[in-house]
Amino acid sequence: MNMLDFLFFIEVTLSGLMAGVMYSLVALGFVLIFKASGIFNFAQGVMALFAALTLVGLMEKFGFPIWLAIIGTIAVMIALAWLIERVMLRQLVNQEPIILFMATIGLAYVLEGMGDILWGSDVKVLDLGIPQGAWEWLYDKGVYIEKLEMFAAGTAAIMVAFLAVFFQKTRIGRALRAVADDHQAALSVGISLHTIWVIVWSVAGIVALVAGIMWGSKSGVQFSLSLIALKALPVLILGGFTSVPGAIIGGMIIGVGEKLAEVYVGPFVGGAIENWFAYMLALAFLLFRPQGLFGEKIIERV
């Protein structure tokens, strides 16, 4: 392998890592909700789209400055979380997981339609002044890396650190972990499930906003944004449904694997393999660890 090939390999790997972090941003929201309520929230991708749409809408239609628009969107996401808990989750306590899963698909439909009606279904440009283009320092050395993706990776790192502190050190975080561990035990020591769910869905909404901002800046705010949920699913099963670090590392493995496969294998089979390759990769990992890399071991009793 000569120098140029090697640099190319590095470039592909790095950009795979960065793309993987973008997937992780979406997967993170899934993990939060699954951990706290055992709900497989299919609407996470649409929530990212909805958040990004709201942000753009607030900026364009109402002329809000960026910081105000972000605060406004966060408020909307919190209100949404409260509404979801009130109208949907509260009625579905103790139902089977598959019922809750289907309900979140219904929720995805509702959010998608609402986003379209409220803010229009045309492609919107989201520009928050996040740096874009090649990172010059590495570009001089022959490796092309998007600045935006570096920025996303940095944001993801900060967010994970923040979430870790939130889960480990705060009172609410402890309550969240208690709920994740055992609903009934948590209830019996006086933790309000309803409040916890609102908090978790709010946090997931904010994570969705971050994901929406990153993906929206990258490829415009449009319907296809909601499809990134489908990209986050293999990340999720690879990392394990219940693990925050799993979501990040799973994302990186998927990102790198996908890019390498696309570049080195894709041309031989007609390309466009990124749609299913991630799933196959995740499946291969699952055959060895059925609960994902970092998921809790599934223990069953008869």
């Binding site: 997981p97 699913l233 099963i237 799933y279 499946l283 055959l287």
Partner: peptide, 13 residues
């Protein structure tokens, strides 16, 4: 080998 939602996502493959 795989169960529940892990399987559901695997069938997406």
């Amino acid at each position: 080998r795989i169960k529940g939602f892990y399987l559901a996502v695997a069938t997406l493959a």
